Amino acid sequence: MHVVPLPALADNYIWLLHDDSRQAIVVDPGEAAPVEAALQSRGLTLRAVLLTHHHADHIGGAGRLRDTYDVPVYAPNDARIDVATHRVADGEILRLQYPSAHFEIIAVPGHTLTHIVYAGEGVLLCGDTLFSLGCGRLFEGTPTQMLSSLQRLASLPGDTLVCCGHEYTAANGRFAQTIEPENAALKQRLDEVARLRADHRPSLPATLSSELACNPFLRVDSANVIEWCRQHGAANDSVARFAALRSAKDVFRA
């Protein structure tokens, strides 16, 4: 499966996946035009649209793609996603015939209460739950919910490609460095990101193993993160540490 990030809107990525027979799916199309252009330039046939959550920058182009290409739109059970043709839920396996692909549906409340991700074919299509070197804001869920969601994703194979919804990696990395300034893996990742962005290339996808080594929101039980949280009065348990990290990130400017 070929995995292509399509830049959209201000800093979104729409994920385009296609096989060698040029059968394609798209994930979280915040607008239709980048998808239409990619399909035409690559000679691809769109077969399905997958949505992770209801925010407009992730579903804004889904209706037009559904109607233009007569394809199904898979989404969580949320009335705010009125473009959906099929609803999917936690624990289900989405089996697509064209392209031939299987994705496990994982419920990840936190950013929104009905957020889901699609995991399979070596990729994690994670919307706004997990970012490279960060995680989504808690617009609807609680720290307990979001940490549990992230821990579920952290249990996936380390070579899984993390396909996030936004190009936030450099900014997230600046925050991560304030938590673990001596983290060598983090420094290496940020050097890589700087080179990629200087060449106007996406910093994504990243491997899950890299995120486990660098992303403070996946490292709430690591010694360095515990020490940072202790200094900020929140070392008692993993949820308190996660909440302290998320609160600090919400107001971080650098």
Rank of each mutant, 00 (worst) to 15 (best):
H2I: 10
P7I: 13
A8Q: 05
L9Y: 03
D11W: 10
Y13A: 06
V26N: 05
V26P: 05
D28N: 15
G30L: 12
E31Q: 14
L39D: 04
T45P: 04
T45Q: 15
L46Q: 13
R47V: 08
A48Q: 08
L50Y: 11
H54W: 12
A56M: 11
H58M: 12
R64F: 04
R64P: 00
D70C: 11
V73E: 02
V73C: 10
A75N: 08
A75C: 02
P76E: 10
I81S: 01
D82V: 09
T85F: 12
V88C: 07
A89C: 09
A89R: 14
I93A: 10
L94V: 14
Q97H: 14
Y98E: 15
A101F: 07
A107V: 10
G110S: 14
T112N: 09
T114Q: 14
L130Y: 08
F131L: 07
G136I: 05
T142H: 06
P143M: 02
L153W: 01
D159H: 14
T160P: 05
L161C: 07
C163Y: 02
C164T: 14
G165A: 04
G165C: 09
G165L: 04
Y168V: 05
T169Q: 08
A170V: 12
G173I: 00
R174K: 10
Q177Y: 00
T178C: 11
N183I: 00
A184H: 04
K187P: 00
L190S: 00
R195F: 01
R197Q: 13
H200V: 11
S203I: 02
P205Q: 09
S209K: 06
E211R: 02
P216I: 10
R219Y: 02
A223K: 12
V225M: 05
I226H: 03
E227F: 03
C229F: 07
D237E: 12
S238D: 13
A240H: 03
A244C: 11
L245V: 06
R246S: 15
S247T: 10
F252R: 02
A254I: 06
